[in-house]
Structures are given as C-alpha cells and as structure tokens.
Design a protein around this nucleic acid. Structure first.
Lengths: 108, 108
DNA sequence: TTTGCCAGTTACCCAGAGGTAACCTGTTAC
DNA sequence: GTAACAGGTTACCTCTGGGTAACTGGCAAA
C-alpha cells in the first residue's frame, strides 16, 4: 500500500468532509448542550449570517448529524438537535474544547 | 453573561483559529506519526499543491505547532515535526480518527 | 391597518483560499 | 554541458464560501 493509496481512506479526511468548514464544528458544539431553536443558535454564534447558518444546518441535516423539527405555529418555531450520529461526536468536541481551553484560552 | 459574550471565549472557536482550514488538520495528523520531510508530507496528502502546503506549514510553524529543521545539504533537506504544543493535540486527532474510522469509513 | 414575531429565502457582491505552470538554487552523476 | 534532485517561490487565474440587504409568510396585538 503506497502513501497515496493509504490516504484515500484517511479517517481525518473522511471526517472533515462531514464536519469541516468554518462554522459546522461550532454549530454542532452548540447543539451538544441540547435542543435549540434557529434564533438561539444564531445568537450564540456571533458573526455567522442567517443565510449561511441555514445552509450549514441543511447540510448537517442531509448528512444525518442533526434533526430539524418544525412546529406548525405562528410565529414559526423550528428546533434543531443532534441525531445519534451527531451525539457520537461528543467525545471529539470534548477533546477539542478541552484543548482550546487549556492551550489557547489559558485556563484549565 | 449573555450568550454572545460567552461565545467570545468559545474554546472550539479558539482552537479552530489555529487548526481550522481545509488542510491543517491533515498535515498535523500526518506529523503525529513522527518527523517527515517536505516531500513526504506532500505525497501523503493527495490533492494539496506545493504552494499551499508551504503556506500552511509556515502558519503552523508561526503558531508554534510544528518545528522546521533545515539541513545545509544539496539537494536540500527539510524536516518537519510537532512541537510540544503540537503533540498535545494528539488526543484530539485520536478521537477524530477513531470517529472517522467507525462512522464514515465503516470499520472499527 | 400597521407593526412585530420567527425562520427563513433571494439577489447581488467580494475577498481570499487554493489551483497550475514556470522558474530558482547548488551539487553530483551522466 | 545538461539533467536530476529537493524544497521551495512567483505570477496569474478561478471558484466558492460567505457577507449584506431586502423580502416573504401568517397570526396577534396595538
């Protein structure tokens, strides 16, 4: 097996195809603490635009990482939460958050 | 503390500023198995161009995640390896790789 | 009857990430 | 004398991720 062939099945590359990008990890991380409405996610992620948030949520839904529940109410209510597959990412985000706290933000 | 203020110190966002992007995680992951020369990294990451590889390596070096050792030889030899800070990312990549293997590539 | 609520959608625009191809360096082997 | 080696650099171009601003929908309250 050559280096190149080995990389075709690179697990990191594989994972990045699902959760790579500027916003997806932060969106998913926000959902690890439970179900949230669209507006709640929006306000918790400073800098993201509603357009992009919608796009990313749609992709995550398509990839089976989150579910979208729409209530038939006025004004509209839409709730997002992790699927089982999405939940299985928790250990990853836990490690990432722990590293970020300790080595970037400078507190344990 | 409001939601927005809380997010200013979001550990995931903090970490993504260092290792976010299309290539950095894969580059770092490649170095977790030890010191490698420029050409070795290049061949192990299909699709990346030499220009971009150089750029990313420079940034990772600037951010203190990798070291660059240049030997005064002809033809040139340059070796890249993780710094202590870079090594501290191992648990993160371990989790990522494990998740990728199990949930995307479909083998434990 | 106008305003506000929430969760979008649409049209339009821009910066920058990243690709390709050619070139450079000094030494050794042909 | 010219090709090959490794590790780049440079000029140039493209593409797309993401931003802004305006608009939609239906109900309820003022």
């Amino acid at each position: 097996m050559t280096d190149a062939q080995e990389n075709i099945e690179c697990p990191i590359t594989a994972m990045l195809e699902l959760i790579g990008g500027k916003w997806k990890p932060i969106i998913l991380y926000n959902l690890t603490s439970g179900t949230r409405r669209f507006g709640q996610i929006d306000v918790r992620i400073p800098g993201i635009s509603r357009k992009v948030l919608t796009e990313q949520l749609r992709q995550l839904e398509k990839d089976g990482l989150i579910k979208r529940k729409e209530y038939n109410e006025i004004p509209p209510r839409v709730e997002y939460s992790l699927t089982e597959l999405g939940e299985s990412l928790s250990p990853v985000f836990k490690e990432m958050a722990s590293w970020g706290k300790e080595h970037v933000l400078g507190n344990g």
